[in-house]
Design a protein around this nucleic acid. Structure first.
Length: 425
RNA sequence: GGAGGAGUGCCAGAGUGGUCGAAUGGGCCGCACUCGAAAUGCGGUGUACUGGCGACGGUACCGGGGGUUCGAAUCCCUCCUCCUCCGCCA
C-alpha cells in the first residue's frame, strides 16, 4: 500500500512513474480520489476529536457535580452530552465510511516502479539485464523433454499426481525424490552460508497475514483456501516469513534481517494446457526456498544486488545457463517496485524457464504490515525484499533436460554429496 | 471435543465505574557520585491519528470486535489466544 503522505507530497513524480505500468486514466485518477478521501478523513477526524474532548470535559464535570451532590446541574450537563453523542455517532459513521473508502482506493493502487524500470506492457518489453555469455547447450537428436525423461527413468510421474489429486501435482519417486530433497538442502545450505536464518513456517496462513504481503485482495484467486477454517495455503514462503515481523518495530541495529525458508508452494493458477505448461513447467504445487530481507530504506537496493548475486551463484554451481531480466512496468508485480527475473535455459524444450523472481517492495508491504524501525525519536517503514533461491520444479526440469546423456542424467558436482549418486540411469 | 481459569506498557505485576496512558518493581536511556566500574541517588522511557511554523495541544489504544453508561482497563455480549484438568491422538 502506498503511503498517503508520499502521494500528497510527491504526486506528480508518482503519477509519472505509475504510467510505466500502463494504467488507465481511471486508474491514475485514483491518486486524486485518495487525496480527496484523505482530506475528508482528516477534517472529520479533527471535528470528532473536538467533540470527544468536549464530552470528556463535561463527563468529568458531571462526576464532580455528583460528588458535590448537585444533582440537578449534573442532569443538565447530561442532556448536553446527550446531544453531543448523537452528533458524535453520526460523525463516526461518516468517518468509518471515508476511512474504508480511502483504504479501498489505496488497495487498488500498485507500487510505484523504480526509476530504472523500463516502460512496457508485455514480457517482450522486459530488459535483458544480464545475458548468457556462454554457448547454449545443444542436444543430440532424440533428446527428450523432462516429462518424458521422468517417465523413462521412473523419477517423475505427472499422471500419478493426477490420480491422487488432479493435474499439476507432480509425484517424484526414487532418485527423483532424492534429487528434489538434495536441491532443497543445497539451497538452504547456501542461504545459511550467506547469512540467512532458516525458518520453517506454517503452510496455512490467516487472512491478516495474506493481506499484509499483498496476496489479498489482489490475488485471492491464486490461493487455495481452507474455507471451513478461513485459512489459505501459501503460494510462497514469502507470505508467512515476511509476516513474522508484521506489526513490529525493529531497532536499527537489527538490520539487515535475513530469513530463508523452504516450503511447498500452492498455486491455483487456472492454467491453460499444452506444451507451455507440460510437465513441471507450471504446476499447482512445487517446492521453493525463499530468501527474505528486511532492511534500512537507504540500503535496500544494495540488498537487492546482493540477492541477485546469491541466486546467480546457485545457478553457476548447478552449471545451468541463465539470464537475468529486468521486468518492465507492465510485467511488474502489483506490489513490487523493481523485480529481476532469472531464467534458465531448458535445452530439450529450447526455451527459457523462469526460476526466480527477486524483488524490492520498498515500503509497499511494510506499510500494510505496519513494519517499522526506530529512527531517532520517530519510526519509519522498513524496506522488504524477497527472492526465490530457488524454485525447484523448473530447476529440476532444466537439469533433467540439459544433463541427459546416452548413459543417463548427470548430477551436477555441487550437489552430489547430497544426492548420494552421480547419475540417474 | 468437555469443564474451569486467565489475557494490562519492553518484562513482571497492581488496578472492579470518574481525578487511570495506567501504581510498584525490574529492564533500558540520561545525569550525579567515581580515576574507572559496581552500588546508590535523581530524571526520563509506548504507538497511531490529528491541530499548530513552533512551543505545545487534542483524540484513540489495557487480546480483537460490539454493547451498557454522562463517563469503561473495570459491567454485559461475542470472537481469538494461553494455562490447568479430562477425552482423543502423531
Amino acid at each position: 500500500m502506498l503511503e498517503v503522505q508520499l502521494i500528497r507530497s510527491d504526486k506528480d513524480r508518482i503519477l509519472e512513474r505509475l504510467k510505466k505500468r500502463n494504467l488507465s486514466a481511471d486508474e491514475l485518477k485514483l491518486l486524486d480520489e485518495v487525496l480527496e478521501a484523505d482530506d475528508r478523513r482528516r477534517r472529520l477526524q479533527t471535528e470528532l476529536d473536538e467533540m470527544k474532548a468536549e464530552r470528556n470535559t463535561l463527563s468529568g464535570q458531571i462526576g464532580e457535580l455528583f460528588r458535590q451532590g448537585k444533582r440537578e446541574e449534573a442532569e443538565q450537563l447530561k442532556s448536553r452530552v446527550g446531544e453531543l453523542k448523537a452528533k458524535l455517532s453520526e460523525g463516526e459513521d461518516a468517518l468509518r465510511k471515508v476511512v474504508d473508502r480511502r483504504e479501498h482506493l489505496l488497495l487498488q493502487i500498485p507500487n510505484v516502479p523504480h526509476e530504472s524500470v523500463p516502460a512496457g506492457s508485455a514480457e517482450s518489453d522486459n530488459e535483458l539485464y544480464r545475458a548468457w555469455e556462454g554457448r547454449l547447450p545443444g542436444l543430440p537428436d532424440g533428446a527428450l523433454p523432462h516429462w518424458e525423461l521422468g517417465e523413462k527413468y521412473g523419477i517423475l510421474d505427472m499422471e500419478l499426481g493426477t490420480k491422487l489429486t488432479g493435474s499439476g501435482f507432480p509425484v517424484f519417486r526414487g532418485m527423483g525424490a532424492r534429487l528434489e530433497r538434495a536441491l532443497i538442502s543445497f539451497f538452504l545450505d547456501e542461504a545459511r552460508k550467506a547469512g540467512y536464518e532458516e525458518i520453517i513456517p506454517p503452510l496455512l496462513v490467516n487472512e491478516d497475514t495474506a493481506r499484509a504481503t499483498g496476496q489479498l485482495p489482489d490475488k485471492e484467486g491464486q490461493m487455495y483456501q481452507a474455507e471451513r477454517d478461513n485459512l489459505y495455503l501459501i503460494p510462497t514462503a514469502e507470505v508467512p516469513i515476511t509476516n513474522i515481523y508484521r506489526n513490529a518495530i525493529l531497532d536499527a541495529s537489527d538490520f539487515p534481517v535475513k530469513l530463508a525458508g523452504y516450503t511447498p508452494c500452492f498455486r491455483r493458477e487456472a492454467g491453460s494446457y499444452g506444451a507451455e505448461v507440460r510437465g513441471l513447467n507450471r504446476v499447482h504445487q512445487f517446492d521453493k526456498v525463499e530468501i527474505v530481507q528486511l532492511v534500512h530504506p537507504d540500503h535496500s537496493y544494495e540488498a537487492l544486488e546482493g540477492m541477485l548475486t546469491h541466486v546467480a551463484g546457485l545457478l553457476q554451481q548447478l552449471e545451468l545457463p541463465y539470464r537475468i531480466l529486468r521486468l518492465c512496468g507492465g510485467d511488474l508485480g502489483f506490489t513490487a517496485a523493481l523485480t529481476f527475473d532469472f531464467e534458465v535455459y531448458s535445452a530439450a524444450q529450447q526455451r527459457w524457464l523462469e526460476v526466480s523472481s527477486v524483488s524490492n517492495f520498498e515500503t509497499y508491504q511494510s506499510n500494510r504490515m505496519k513494519l517499522r524501525f526506530r529512527d531517532g525519536k520517530s519510526t519509519r517503514l522498513v524496506h522488504t525484499l524477497n527472492g526465490s533461491a530457488l524454485a525447484l520444479a523448473r530447476i529440476v526440469a532444466a537439469l533433467l533436460e540439459n544433463n541427459q546423456t546416452p548413459d543417463g542424467i548427470v548430477i551436477p558436482k555441487a550437489i552430489r554429496h547430497l544426492t548420494g549418486f552421480d547419475i540417474i540411469s
